[in-house]
């Protein structure tokens, strides 16, 4: 990894196509600047996100993982985000419990119109993750060698 000065975190974001992904689009249309360290993966619904995706991102070396969906009550599929809320709440608490830094995970509700919220959250998240430095826990490296 690069020196602290030039260090830029790698962040994977899973955005619901009906809201947060649209917000990111809108942020672009509005020429809102937000950090470039976020790689967005479009998903059909926050309820479609398995904790497996988040762990996979961490295994592959993501420094931060962000999940964003529609506000409760606004799900395109009626209840997907309600299930996501339960599931991801338990999962976030579990990761926190085993010592994965809380700040590496971000869960937000961002509607398609909330480009400014997206910008704010993105800036705050990137700053927080950058402050933690590169992820080490649960990151798969290929270095291990047995003598």
């Amino acid at each position: 990894m690069a020196s602290p000065k030039t260090y830029r975190p790698n962040i994977v974001a899973f955005f619901c196509r009906w809201c947060s992904y649209g917000a990111a689009d809108l942020a672009g249309s509005l020429r809102l600047r937000y950090p470039v360290d976020i790689r967005i993966v479009r998903v059909p619904c926050s309820g479609s996100i398995s904790p497996q995706y988040l762990l996979y991102a961490l295994l592959q070396g993501a420094d931060g993982v962000w999940v964003s969906g529609c506000h409760p009550g606004d799900c395109h599929y009626r209840i997907g985000n309600m299930h996501a809320r339960r599931r991801l709440t338990l999962f976030h608490n579990l990761l926190d419990y085993v010592g994965i830094e809380r700040a590496r995970l971000l869960f937000t509700w961002i509607a398609a119109s909330e480009a400014h919220k997206l910008q704010r959250e993105a800036e705050a998240f990137v700053t927080a993750v950058a402050a933690l430095g590169p992820a080490r826990r649960l990151v798969k490296s290929l270095e291990t060698c047995i003598l």
Binding site: P72, I79, R86, N93
Partner: peptide, 15 residues
Amino acid sequence: ALAVFSPDDPDEVFS
């Protein structure tokens, strides 16, 4: 627990 939900479920990890 994860097959059901309530509209009032805590939002503690979401912002």
